[in-house]
Amino acid sequence: MAGKEIKLSLWALDPTINIETVSDLMQLNYNKIIDYLEDRNDISRFDKTLMNRWREYDQDRGFKVQEIEVFGSAFRYISAYAYFETTIGHDTAIIDGTVLPRERRISENELPVFFFEFIGRVYVVVSGSQYKINNIRTLLMGHGRHTNDEQKQWKRVQLKDIPNFNFTSDFFYWLISKENKTVETALVKMDINDIRFLAQSGTERSDVRHESQGANILDEAVSKTGLGVNSRVDMIGTTISFEGGHINLIIFDNGVCWVDNYNSAMNGITGELEAFEENLEMGALTLFCGILPELKTAYNNDKNNNLWTTEHQAKARKLWALGAINELCSENDITYEEIIELEWFLK
């Protein structure tokens, strides 16, 4: 079972790889001999082999390419489990020359992985913690030591600057401005219900990083001050409601998303709401094929139609700055006479 947060990382496959290629690559042999046991003849081949492989997400579908409709558009995808085994080190696996039983030195790991085509490229969404998902690339995508030529057919996996899923600070300022409003595109209406997490870092005068979390954080002087001085925003937490569900999440600037499993739900097959984890395939694909791209579309539409310009952002920053000043005056009983004695007003 997932905990409170479902962590969804995003990668992009090499542009030469299509979704059918992925289906073929999943059926390669990814088993790996444990280095320090390779020359041991007193144990079986199985006991010294890590049994790494892709497993079917749904046995009835296997690794066949599927199609899903998100907000009226069709996307091709493959869902799978990345299964890999990890082992303890040499010094703890071998005691007085005797190799411990397999079950005492090898751990099983299984993470859901979703491959989908978007604008001519295959993207990968992986659910799991960072230290575990790194093993998927090294053990199951041809990036590990002793990888054979066949496994290297995965080619390059892009981890940074993911096309179509990079979010700028200006995008996040725009999203903040949409708090408690409806964002609408040709495909979907999305209600931005709150801003509950905000990560700010760096201005022309400072390199300080600050994170705020909780209800009504935009009413707090610290958050308003950071926005007012044009700090860089690289993470936003909000709740997005749409026909089909609502997702409480944190969006990172590199497309990574952390979904609050306890406060997110998707419509199931019967139309009943299900926890995000219970409908992870639909939830992940809706998020990355629909929600995030449509937010970016709405942002670009506002930019192209001069509904969000540098002047709009400057005006918003001024309002946040004034709000911070008002909050600080209230908290510290600062008078008008004291305000006008500040250096800025004496110029």
Rank of each mutant, 00 (worst) to 15 (best):
S223T: 11
K224T: 03
K224M: 14
T225D: 14
G226P: 05
G226Y: 10
G226R: 08
L227C: 03
G228N: 04
G228T: 04
V229D: 08
V229Y: 12
V229C: 12
V229L: 12
N230G: 05
N230K: 12
S231F: 00
S231E: 08
S231Y: 01
S231G: 10
R232S: 14
R232G: 11
R232Q: 14
R232T: 15
R232Y: 13
V233K: 03
V233T: 13
V233S: 07
D234A: 07
D234G: 11
M235R: 15
I236G: 05
I236L: 15
G237F: 08
G237N: 11
G237M: 09
G237W: 07
T238F: 06
T238H: 06
T238A: 07
T239Y: 05
T239I: 10
T239G: 06
I240P: 01
I240G: 00
I240L: 09
I240W: 01
I240S: 01
S241E: 10
S241P: 04
F242Y: 13
F242I: 02
E243T: 13
G244K: 01
G244M: 00
G245A: 01
G245L: 00
H246Q: 07
I247L: 06
I247V: 11
I247F: 05
I247G: 01
N248R: 15
L249Y: 13
L249I: 14
I250F: 04
I250C: 08
I251L: 15
I251D: 03
I251C: 12
I251W: 06
F252A: 14
F252Q: 14
F252W: 11
F252C: 10
D253S: 14
D253R: 12
N254M: 08
N254E: 12
G255L: 00
G255I: 05
G255F: 03
V256D: 13
V256R: 14
V256P: 00
V256T: 13
C257Y: 02
C257Q: 04
C257E: 01
